[in-house]
Nucleic acid binder design. Structure first.
Lengths: 129, 129
DNA sequence: TATATAGTTAGCTCCATGGCTAACCAATTA
DNA sequence: TAATTGGTTAGCCATGGAGCTAACTATATA
């Protein structure tokens, strides 16, 4: 029944929608009612509420109702969780780059070792900003 | 015609799928052929190729074919772009928290000012790791 | 040249997503 | 108590995403 999506699945697919990113951005600035949140969007309320619901089940947003107004706030743990994923990827990716750089340096050294015999040729890299 | 999804839409929805996150993680460790990438996944090749294609149009992955083998590599700019989005959210969110904290401090001070008359009560915060 | 390998294309299902309207509570406010 | 406001529920529809099989192309290899 329940498709048992992983937490990251839910967070990323929640953030894949511009309306929902808009909501999250708005909530980063502070809590707000559903009406306030919906105001900037040209969309029927029920449609909008679905977005809120998606954000809630993803764990990005919490809400509570008092009287007839529902107030939403960000729950940043989820956001941070996703951010962590990127940092992990970057870590392994940068580690590899370091190794690659070391490898290139080694190649370069070997080349320079052999360069005494042949005319030298500097290697080129494109787009090194 | 072309639905003109924003770059972030594409990146996040690309990362919303565990197969595709798997591919990205694998590619963080270095380039690989489609076959190598597909190997760990129990999935027909055409289905798998769709994932590769999604990753390519999102800008997360680049590939080139030489002979009959297509080699894929990460293009990290896209990843970094998404990571940036989180950092921006976090920035505004933390700025708010700072302001909030300042506000709480102010309240606290005012309270302490009045505390000479009434018994003091320390405010509590839950989950301050 | 025949066979195997590595992708690719075409085309089909299924169901999740994003939007809508209409009708419906339940608190406020007049 | 009647009307308004703020949200909710139900249900419809169109699109797109993720998977499949079958058949095809192009490059290596025997």
């Amino acid at each position: 029944m329940a498709n048992q999506l992983s937490r990251l699945d839910q967070i990323f697919s929640a953030l894949a929608d511009p309306t929902r990113r808009g909501i999250v951005m708005r909530l980063c600035a502070g809590e707000a009612s559903v009406g306030e949140l919906a105001d900037p969007f040209e969309m029927a309320l029920p449609s909008f509420m679905k977005h809120i619901h998606v954000l809630e089940t993803s764990g990005l947003v919490q809400s509570e109702k008092s009287g007839r107004v529902r107030t939403c706030r960000l729950s940043p743990e989820a956001l941070v969780g996703a951010e962590d994923w990127f940092q992990q990827q970057r870590a392994t990716w940068e580690a590899r780059l370091d190794r690659f750089e070391a490898y290139v340096m080694k190649l370069k050294k070997e080349k320079e070792g052999a360069a005494a015999k042949r005319p030298s040729r500097t290697s080129k890299r494109k787009g090194a900003k």
